[in-house]
Design a binder for these strands. Structure first.
Lengths: 358, 358
DNA sequence: CTGAAAGCGCTTACAG
DNA sequence: CTGAAAGCGCTTACAG
């Protein structure tokens, strides 16, 4: 690269006394080369520090890479998955010219069967690589095993499934995010304050990380030697009115911190009616509903994990692996962002969700 | 794109009854084409929704784009500029294959003359595009005027110079960042609390945005109807001991908020000795020195503006403009990040600065 | 196991 | 003002 002209496959061929076709075979580990010439060529490649020109490779090859995504559909009451999808689409436009085809499959976040159905459909198309949000543990393991059997590499997004041989993972560190929530809530706590944690259990069972968020918060408070009460209520799939009632009952004068491990806006609705008294409320994700309560001051902090970037990098990870054939970083915990009324408009994810072009 | 095979320059040529050479001329607005054929070709390009293949363009062309950067050198007492540089280098590796050459010029943040010197040197090389951190207003305007005269597009990073016709700008919204600091400090304020603002004036004169940070803070407190005292001290270029003395004198029992508009670690050093009493301290930037005081709990919040991303996108902006010839978003205020002891290790910029591969 | 040739979708002189 | 040909650095059949 430094010494004047770039070296190409032709230079390697000349130096090795073979044709460029043979160099190409060595480069791609094709079998039809004698061990002797393979070694010779490999040595020269290394000596000359040769790196193939990716542009030329892609232009000459008619191979098309087919990548598939399998993520939740954006639903009326949850706009979260719009973020990762936008990021994936942005990456798609950047790499389309390289001969990438992207097929999109969506499932219903409240229906395991839709996940299974779509995953089966997907596999019949023989993808080169997959991005999957494995939110249902059991069904996901089943699916990932099939991927392994067919040696199809996959990227995990949002949720990690331990013990699987994924290519890379992009997601949050749930425990740490709860720990961070503890710091924020802790700012207002006194000796006899109370902290209220609200879990929506209907969402809980499929998503172990909601529990980890609670654990993180509790561990922070314990570390800080907080002596007050930490109460958690698990709201199951009851009627909305009933849910509202329960939350309201648990909001006391001493409640200085409210932590919603998901669907913050549902909790905020009640907290707002209860009046704001030096309370800190922390929730998750910059969704449309949540933003309303951020704006009116009910929610103080939203913890976010860059959904847009998660999507963008997931696809880029497949691209780097297959097209650039570079090593890919396996575990990618996303930065924990603290979003407030004062900075949310500058947040990239807010811009995406407002469809402002980056 | 959708209907089977992609259309290329050859298809356009055939349909227009001209050679591909002529299509190429139209595509690049070269003059040697009759108005009649130009119009005909242009219409077909539009009808067929043709988009040139960037890979093929770059492969065929021997044109090399030369981009230059002119940013402050990382100094012993300020590691900030390592961030933008890392981002630029990351972008460089991604686009090198496209025939991009990047030349790097650095100046001394405390020496206007070094800026002038390097900028003159740079211009003799006839760059295609420039990334510049215009921290010295007067000298920068002089330089940018020369760029305009030579019709060299430039990207502004970190600081914006109003009234200049920059290609794009990446940086912070200083006022808003101060406003955000107000929110954070406000969490601990009571009726009779005091807030202490520390400015380092030696740094102030070249960097108007340090003043804007203060303004932002004040405007937040005013909006919240804060009745307590807001005291600012401007530390000039006196001896370190003297500076320490002044800060210490201004730390009272009632001081519930400390805001360092720059060099937070220098202030934190004193705040730490004064003991921690329900005070919130806010500073700027995830530098090595600051991290120490974040870790030991003296600094509660650091406001950051993604220096790595600023660098990365600055270079990508030139790339998009020249190579992809897509429109580039002009103003790009960066998200205001809130960094605490609980989330800094997950911050991308921290990883960069720790040289962890992304 | 290896080489020679055509081609990917463009750009670039060169000829007219 | 326009066209035909060579070439960018690779991959891909095809022939031997």
């Amino acid at each position: 690269m430094k010494s004047g002209k770039k070296i190409g496959i032709r230079d390697i061929a000349k130096k090795a006394g073979v044709s460029i076709g043979t160099v190409d075979r060595v480069l791609h580990n094709r079998a039809e080369v004698s061990e002797k010439t393979r070694k010779k060529v490999l040595k020269i490649i290394k000596d000359l520090n040769y790196h193939p020109n990716v542009l030329a490779q892609r232009l000459a090859s008619d191979k098309i890479f087919r990548f598939f995504i399998l993520i939740p559909r954006r639903s009326a009451d949850n706009s979260y998955w719009e973020g990762p999808l936008s990021g994936i689409l942005k990456a798609e436009t950047e790499i389309k010219a390289y001969g990438i085809q992207l097929d999109k499959y969506f499932f219903n976040l409240n229906d395991k069967n839709s996940f299974r159905r779509e995953s089966l459909k997907l596999l019949t198309s023989r993808p080169d690589g997959i991005i999957v949000a494995p939110v249902f543990e059991h069904e996901s393991r089943e699916f990932l095993r099939k991927c392994d059997d067919n040696t199809i590499p996959y990227v995990l997004i949002d949720t990690i499934i331990k013990g699987q041989s994924y290519l890379s993972y992009y997601g949050q560190n749930s425990r740490q995010s709860g720990y961070l929530a503890g710091k924020l809530i802790g700012l207002k706590l006194k000796r006899h304050s109370e902290v209220l944690i609200v879990n929506f259990t209907s969402e809980l069972k499929n998503r172990p990380h909601l529990l980890e968020r609670e654990e993180g918060l509790r561990s922070y408070l314990k570390e800080q030697d907080f002596k007050g009460r930490v109460k958690n209520i698990n709201v199951s799939s009851m009627a909305e009115k009933e849910i509202d009632e329960i939350i309201l009952q648990n909001l006391h004068n001493r409640t200085r911190g409210v932590f919603a491990t998901s669907s913050a806006h549902k909790v905020a609705k009640i907290v707002k009616t209860a009046g704001k008294r030096k309370r800190i409320m922390v929730g998750y994700d910059l969704t449309e509903d949540n933003v309303l309560y951020l704006e009116n001051g009910t929610i103080d902090f939203l913890i976010c994990q860059r959904p847009f970037e998660q999507g963008y990098h997931s696809l880029m990870s497949l691209f780097d692996h297959f097209v650039k054939t570079t090593k890919v970083r396996k575990n990618n915990p996303m930065p924990l962002e603290i979003i407030t009324r004062e900075n949310y408009k500058n947040s990239l994810d807010y811009k995406k969700y407002k469809n402002e072009e980056q």
